[in-house]
Simulated assay, not measured.
Amino acid sequence: MSIAGKKIAILATHGFEQSELEVPLQKLKEAGAQVQIVSLEAGEIKGWAKKDWGRPVSVDRTLGEAKPSDYDALVLPGGQINPDLLRVEPKAIEFIKGFWRDNKVIGAICHAPWLLIEAEIVKGRRVTSYHSIKTDVINAGGRWEDSEVVTDQGLVTSRNPGDLDAFSRKLIEEIGEGVHQRRAA
């Protein structure tokens, strides 16, 4: 499916899981999207590659420069460090909430549902995540599922480790559908 002309933000900071940023980034670009890395500060952010620091990625825009209205969708890579640092940043949470309020697609991988919890998005929604935050999702009112990829009205989550290609395909499909009218959970 082509999503040519769509603009996608990937919100990340230091400690993002390398593959969870790079695979969706590559797949979204291959599908024709314009993708920007949005972070807390300008410059570069450094990834985490399984058991050690990974490669740096250039930041395209800071949170101070980016607005949800600039984009068609949002991707939240996981790793333990990245979402834990972002979930205590009010600007990051407001950025995420803006996508949800505007009925735009949000994709979250692994530990990134922590950000969805902070943004008060998971309550009543079908969600998956890395197994270690299952209780956090449930305690926030999410309907946690042990599935590789779960979609609920434009919210795409992946438990990873798993198939990031399957996550990316579902994300692209949801972006191609456009805004999602959301029923109350």
Rank of each mutant, 00 (worst) to 15 (best):
L40Y: 07
K170N: 05
L74F: 08
K46C: 13
L74N: 11
Q181P: 14
A166P: 13
E89Y: 06
N103I: 12
D165Y: 14
V23T: 01
K91I: 03
K27Y: 14
R159A: 13
D165C: 15
G176W: 06
W114E: 14
G98V: 06
K50N: 14
Q36T: 09
W48N: 09
V150D: 04
R169C: 11
F99G: 07
H111A: 09
R125P: 15
I3N: 00
G107D: 10
L25D: 05
L155D: 03
L25T: 05
G141E: 08
L40I: 10
L116S: 08
P24V: 02
V23W: 02
D72I: 03
S132E: 07
A66L: 09
N103D: 06
H180W: 02
K123G: 11
V137A: 05
F167Y: 09
G178P: 02
I45Y: 01
I172M: 02
H180S: 01
I81N: 01
V35P: 01
P56M: 07
S147G: 15
F99S: 02
G162D: 11
S39F: 03
D84A: 13
I81V: 10
T157N: 07
N160L: 10
K134W: 06
A42T: 11
D60H: 15
T151L: 03
G64S: 09
A4K: 07
Q26T: 13
G43H: 07
D165A: 14
E118D: 14
P56E: 08
A184K: 13
I93L: 10
T128C: 08
E148N: 13
R159C: 14
G15A: 07
E173M: 12
V179D: 04
D72Q: 05
K6G: 05
S147N: 15
D84T: 06
V59L: 05
V179F: 04
D146W: 07
E177Y: 10
G124W: 08
E89T: 14
D165S: 10
E173W: 04
A185S: 10
A42K: 13
G32F: 08
I93C: 06
G64L: 12
V23R: 05
T62V: 01
L11M: 00
Q18D: 08
S132G: 10
T157K: 02
K51L: 14
K51E: 15
Q18P: 06
T13A: 04
R143K: 12
E177T: 06
G154S: 05
G176A: 00
L115Q: 09
K46M: 07
G176D: 00
K104R: 04
E17W: 10
C110Q: 04
E89P: 01
L115W: 01
G154A: 01
G142T: 15
P77G: 00
E41K: 10
P56T: 09
P161Q: 02
E30V: 14
G141Y: 05
Q26H: 13
A9N: 09
P24Q: 00
P68C: 06
N139S: 12
A119F: 00
I8G: 06
E20I: 00
E120F: 06
A112H: 07
V88D: 11
P56R: 10
L40A: 08
D102A: 12
Q36N: 12
K29V: 12
V88L: 13
K27M: 09
P113H: 03
A119L: 00
Y130H: 14
V150E: 01
G178C: 01
K91N: 10
I172H: 04
S39H: 02
G141F: 09
K50V: 13
G107P: 09
L11D: 01
I138F: 05
T128L: 03
P161G: 08
N160M: 14
G47L: 00
